[in-house]
Amino acid sequence: MSYKTDLPVMLPVKPRALEPFKSLKKRHILLIAFLTIVGPSLVFAQTGEFEKSPLAILLDWTPLLLSGFLFNLVISFGAMALGTLVGGLLGLGQVSLFAPTRASSWLVTQFFRNAPWLVLLFFAMFLLPFELNIFGFKLPLPDWFKAILGLSLPVMANVSEIVRGAVRSLPSGQWEAAESLAYTRRQTLWLIILPQCVKRMLPPWMNLYSILTMATVLASIVGVSEVMTLTGRALAAEGGRTDLLAPFYGLVLVLFFIYCYPIARFTVWLEHKFSVIN
């Protein structure tokens, strides 16, 4: 229905068009370029006595650092997949009608949600053996795998809360309508409730992924050869030159920014889209 009116408040709300990259302006790109290219050269200009420019050294090391960053991504994928799987089940446990399941799922969720990520990572690193003995088969547990396990714990707890929140946010009328049509509780959950929850869960889930990706550098503290570890080693190999610190860590920052920023923008866009529909 549309009414003719002069009053702006009577007009339908026109949401501001949101595009994932609209707010990334030219000056931002310039800033990134400065950090990666111009910055190091400036440093070089001021400390010209070295035989090789920091930029040239950075370029030499870039392939290795990129491979390290790729490893961060692998850890983030693994921890996210595992955490989502287990966290999803835990979230369903939190909305169970069976009180002991509900209570224990709640306890596990709260425990891991309120624990520092680094401590969880240390637990996984130092409490798990370096190999598992399953029926005589020796299954090695490499450090990166333990890092995935350790980081998947907080992800699991947060996913559990996302699932619980989404299920609880649906109007009770949906449950009642399904009940009055004689759906079983399981059918109600899988056919009616959860499909509607996916939309609501996607933005916070992606937000969580972004945070997790940035947290993967914690694995450097426990010795996994991801981008931070490799950066440290590269700097050491170059003799600990102080003029290299800014360009090297700058590159790492830029790598994360290039990866995480689009995800954040896309999340905002999704949130906006869904808030208009529902």
Partner: peptide, 14 residues
Amino acid sequence: RKKVGMVFQQYNLF
């Protein structure tokens, strides 16, 4: 509930 149908104030369609 197979014997008793119900229609709600808020429709509650899926």
